[in-house]
Amino acid sequence: MKTYKKIIEYLDDQLSESEKASFEKELNSSPSLQSEFLQYKKFKESLSGFKNIEVDESYFIDTIPKFRTRQSLLNRYKTLPRLALSLSTLLTVVLILVIFIPRSNKVVAPNKVVVVVDSNGVDFSTLLDPNSDNFNLNYISSSEASHYDSLLNSMITKSLDLSPSELSYIAPNNNSDLSGLLKNINEKEADNIYNEVLKQKILGR
């Protein structure tokens, strides 16, 4: 064991009786050890002067009130992070809804010009317009009439969730029935059908 360690152990009363006796014998015979020992002894004694220092007692009287004040502040501000978290979560959810979820009831803008033409180059909208010169079944060829007829049938089936056999009871299935149906269509209904066809065929909804 190094000398300084032995001195510290001796001063701390950590040596056994035999170790103590051996150290004291060495101490009596070595002036250098004596000098080192005195340094540690003096230092150790000086430390005991720091054990009971006179202080301003008012500090210790204020410790508890200070703690209580701090505690009530902590409790008051404990809800703030929770509130901030809730608000930010809500805001995030709203932003996600606005940005990522498409609006289901999107209507084709009335001023949006989308022209759908048939195989003869005739605008489909004029075909369904009762005021148009083209609003005439004679203008439609039998194959086109059949095509529009099946288109209407599929729209009705889809909208009403019907099977083809159920549809046969309520929907026309030939050109003459379609003729009767188109004659009874007013302007508003024609617009709706036009918009619906646009949605299904052009916009894919």
């Binding site: 430390l47 002067g49 720091f50 220092i53 006179e54 202080v55 301003d56 500090y59």
Partner: peptide, 15 residues
Amino acid sequence: DILKDIETKEKLDKL
């Protein structure tokens, strides 16, 4: 500081 005595404070500062 809460130390009353200046001399003690100086000694404590060193330590």
